[in-house]
Each structure stands twice: as C-alpha cells, then as structure tokens.
Design a protein around this nucleic acid. Sequence first.
DNA 1: TGTACATCAGTGAACGCGCGTTCACTGATGTAC
DNA 2: TGTACATCAGTGAACGCGCGTTCACTGATGTAC
Lengths: 216, 216
Amino acid sequence: MAIAGKETPRERYRAQLRAEIKQHAWEQIAAAGAPGLSLNAIAKQMGMSGPALYRYFASRDELITELIRDAYRSLADTIRATADSGADMAGLGHALRAWALDDPQRYFLIYGTPVPGYHAPDDVTTIASEIMDALLHAARPGAIPADAPDDSRLEAHLAEHRGWAAAHAAPPAALRRALLFWTRLHGILSLELAGHFSGMGLDPAELYEHELRHLT
Amino acid sequence: MAIAGKETPRERYRAQLRAEIKQHAWEQIAAAGAPGLSLNAIAKQMGMSGPALYRYFASRDELITELIRDAYRSLADTIRATADSGADMAGLGHALRAWALDDPQRYFLIYGTPVPGYHAPDDVTTIASEIMDALLHAARPGAIPADAPDDSRLEAHLAEHRGWAAAHAAPPAALRRALLFWTRLHGILSLELAGHFSGMGLDPAELYEHELRHLT
DNA sequence: TGTACATCAGTGAACGCGCGTTCACTGATGTAC
DNA sequence: TGTACATCAGTGAACGCGCGTTCACTGATGTAC
C-alpha cells in the first residue's frame, strides 16, 4: 500500500495521464466548443483506444465537470494572486481580462450558455464565492471613490440580501461595487469574446478601461 | 405559375409547415440547448419521417441560421416598437429584459457561447445594426443626464471609430451611452439567465434597475 | 368539363459515421514471502 | 534474491444508438389544353 503523502510511480503516472487527457480536452474545446468534446476523439489523438480513458475518468460528464472545476480554480487563483499582490480593482479587472482572452472557450465554460438540465457540483459554488470574496476585499470601504452615485434603493436591497457576502463586513456600497465590477466587465468580455464588436470597428479594450475608470 | 403577391394554397401550406418545424425546433432548443437540435427528432415529434424535412430546409445548418435570423429579427422588432412608442432608454431596457426572460435560449442563440468556426450570414449583421440604431436614437443628446462622467478618453476613441454608428450624427456621449446600455445590461442578463445569481440570494432585477437609473 | 401531364410532399431503405460505454482478455508492473 | 501472486493499464470487439443526408419511389395535388 502506498504511504500517504508519498506518491508511487503508478500514481504519478496516473496523475500525469489524467493531466494529458485534460490538456487534449481543452484543445478540442478550443477547436469545436464544449459540446464537441469526445472521449473517443481524445483517445485517438493520444494514440490509444477509446475505452482506455475509462481508467482515468468514469464518464464524459465527469471529465467535463473536472474541466469546469479546473477553469473556476484557475480563475480564482488568478484573481486571488492578483489581489494578494496589492492590486486595486482596476488591477483585478486587467487580470480578469487577460485570463479571459487567454482562452475564450475556458471563459465560456464558466460564464457561457448553460446546458439546460446540467447542474454544477457544489464545490464549484464554493470556488465561485472565493472569487467574490477577493472582489469584496478589493472593494472595501477605503477604495470607494467620492463620485459614487447615491442610490439608496440598490444598497438597501443588498443590505438585506448579503448571504453571498456573509464572510465580509463590507458596507452596501462595497457590495454594489463588487457586483457591478463583475456584471459590467463580464458584459464587455463576453460580447468581445463572442465577436460582437468585430464588425463595429471600435476597440472593446477602450470600453473596458472606461468601465474600470468609472467603477462606482 | 403563381401570381406574384398572391399565395397559392401550396405555398401557404409550405410556409405553415416551415413555421411548424421552427416552432418544434425552438421547443427542442429550450429543452436541450442549440447543440442538441436534431432534424430527425423534430420530424419524429411532428409524426413524419426524417427526410421529409429536407423539403423545407436544405440542411440542419440552414435551419439553425434561420432560427438565429428570426431571433435577431424578433429582438430588433421589439426594440424598435418600444422606441417608436416613445420609450426612453429605461423603457428599452425593460423591453430587452422582458424579451430575454421570455426565452433564455433564444437570447443565448444570439449572445451566448459562439461555436468556433460558425459565421453568421451578412443579413443578421444588418439586423444587429438596426438594434444599435434604435439605441442610438434613444441615446440622443437631449437624453444625456447631467451627471454623465467627463471622460474624454473613451469619447475621443468613439469619435474616431464610429463606423457602426454612421447612420447617426450622435455625439460621442450618445455613442458611449448606447454602448454601455448594451454591455452593462447584457452583463447582468446573461449572468442571470445562466443562473449565476441563483445561489446568491439577491435579486438581479434590482441590479438591472440600478444600471438603468445610472446609465451615463 | 374532362383528360393528360407535371409538380411536389412524404416515405422507407440505406449509407457512413461517430458517439458513450461494457466486457472479456492480454501483458506488464508492482507486492509479499 | 527469486518466485508466486495480485494489481492495474490498455486492447479489440461489440452493443445500441442517433445523427445528417441521399435516393428511388408512391401517391396526391395542381396545371394546361
């Protein structure tokens, strides 16, 4: 039996092959989108037979779930690391954009069109709230600009519905700021990644910067 | 030969069956998303054989393209009609939201995850700019609020890249307003429709209203 | 108005394909004495 | 250190399925004289 903490060669090999499978899966998703992901195609690409992959993933669904988990994990780590390095919200915005542009289909795996009937496992919800935590921390009181609009309606609502921000004692203005950071930047990013600006002749980065400058 | 403008019974029947096929297609998309759309399944649902549908659509791709076109057309008509009834931007925002909530998968067919390699036909680009036209008209000078931020950087960029708004003599502030209307509301809507607020315990409608109130 | 012909909707069989997944099996790698 | 056994990776065949699409054909509907 393997000693806990010490990996046997077999375990190392398993972990490596799982990683290799996932890498091919990402390439396939980048090429044809998530619905086009096929275990058999991955196996062929790796020079092995289809059933072999079932030693590493119980089903296609498990693989996809794992990819979604990894995508969330990667985004959360990126945001967290940026926040830890002392960046402000604009810095987080730039990190988010770079992460999204790095692999659009990975972004869409998290924030794209949902597949009716599919429900993400609980742990990705946990990771999602990690991301919100980092945003909330960056949106802490001292960082609220003076020209923030005075809108008691939204803040009153947020003050009463702050379960998602329970870990933080952030004031309503910070809750609002974190949420708008998320929704506004996602709006630009998802339209940009989907190509909706491409025929318009303007640079979405300018819009993005504008939103970062006026994040209230 | 049919007299132009006057439909023969056969033509009426054809048009009706095409519409019926599309309706079943929408139901199927609502149930399983666009990638799950299948001509054979539609035929079975309608009580006919698979190949029969090829009398009405040359291929699966043509059907999907037609659905995308219809979705764009429906959105453009909704926005246009709302604008023509004298609504301001907030009114347009409410119309957009109602349209999106009415059929989330239809919304995602336009603004959701793009399928790598798929390119929409030219005419949908035309319809898309119709929508932008209506937004630009509603964002005309007189409607710009006094608390609009003074940001010469974005407006300078837009002043130089206004091909998408060529039909309008709108000032840069109006261009900005129309664009932010689009990106901000899409941000909230797409996250809402994808269920990203569902575990958070807050009402995305409140966020949406906030953005409409502070559309600068 | 009736007959001859052309048009067109829809069928059933078939093609080729790829999918996810199962199963019995081979051969290599690791473990226990 | 060598032998006996257990574990595990990977294969190839197979199952059942659904897909898009083509084709030759039947039968009904419309058109022309």
